[in-house]
């Protein structure tokens, strides 16, 4: 299976403070990889570096076989790399419909952008009912659905998701995870998921990437991390 994302010896940080050190892993096409680890392990920094918001200080990021160095952030979505940032992905001053329109503005294929929008409304009927509401009038779950739905309008190959379960009811989280699984299995989407909620993440993921203090301490099939007591105790603390 070809890897959509390959990370080698990646270093990154904020100013003089290094956060990521020598990070390496790869994510095969059509799979879900979950990045796990405690607060401050560097999970969000990793996603921000992958989508170009943060410049790496060393190492390589290969996406679909291409080196991403020097590619501008605003061009990544055109290549099929979508990033839903933590907590504040929705532009709260815009309506639901405007947020979704924004997600497809760069697309040349206007008809398909509209079709993708209708699919999002079908996927999340709650959004269709509230399309003229402003972002800040939505509940946490609706915002998360909107942020994910808006990313899907790009018809991405790789979806970077930061803490999609944050502040959501378990039922909504389960719904979103099931959706991700389905998109991977049916449409070949590849997902890199950052999660605090380890059980939820391992239930949906194919691969678990455990980080601690800016390093990858282990990358293993999710089933092994789930079932091997020794690994689970050592790296995930339960």
């Amino acid at each position: 299976m070809t890897a959509v994302l390959e990370v080698e010896a990646l270093d990154a940080g904020y100013g003089p403070v290094p956060v990521l050190r020598d990070v390496a892993f790869s994510v095969p096409a059509g799979t879900v990889a979950a990045v796990l680890g405690a607060n401050g392990a560097g999970k969000t920094t990793l996603l921000r570096t992958l989508s170009g918001l943060l410049r790496p200080t060393g190492g390589r990021i290969r996406y679909a076989g291409e080196d991403l160095r020097g590619v501008r952030v605003e061009h990544l979505v055109r290549r099929g790399l979508a990033h839903v940032p933590e907590g504040r992905g929705v532009v709260t001053e815009l309506t639901v419909a405007e947020n979704l329109r924004l997600g497809g503005l760069w697309r040349r294929d206007r008809a398909d952008a509209r079709r993708a929008r209708d699919e999002v409304y079908a996927l999340f009927p709650a959004l269709a009912d509230r399309r003229d509401h402003l972002g800040h009038q939505l509940s946490g779950g609706e915002r998360q659905m909107l942020a994910i739905g808006r990313a899907l309008i790009a018809r991405p190959r790789l979806l970077l998701l930061d803490e999609p379960s944050l502040g959501l009811a378990p039922r909504v989280t389960a719904q979103i995870m099931a959706l991700l699984r389905r998109l991977c299995d049916e449409q070949g989407l590849t997902v890199l998921l950052v999660e605090q909620n380890v059980r939820t993440a391992l239930a949906v993921a194919d691969q678990g990437i455990v980080m601690s203090l800016g390093r990858v301490v282990t990358a293993a099939p999710a089933a092994r991390l789930r079932d091997d007591d020794r690994l689970r105790h050592a790296y995930l603390g339960f």
């Binding site: 952030v73 405007e98 924004l102 997600g103 503005l105 790009a154």
Partner: peptide, 24 residues
């Protein structure tokens, strides 16, 4: 207009807008 929507988004949420392909 699309450019108006881009301008509003870029003003309110520059980082998110860049991730959505807007040249802020």
């Amino acid at each position: 207009t699309p450019v108006g929507l881009r301008m509003r988004a870029a003003a309110f949420a520059p980082e998110v807008s860049r991730l959505l392909g807007v040249s802020v």
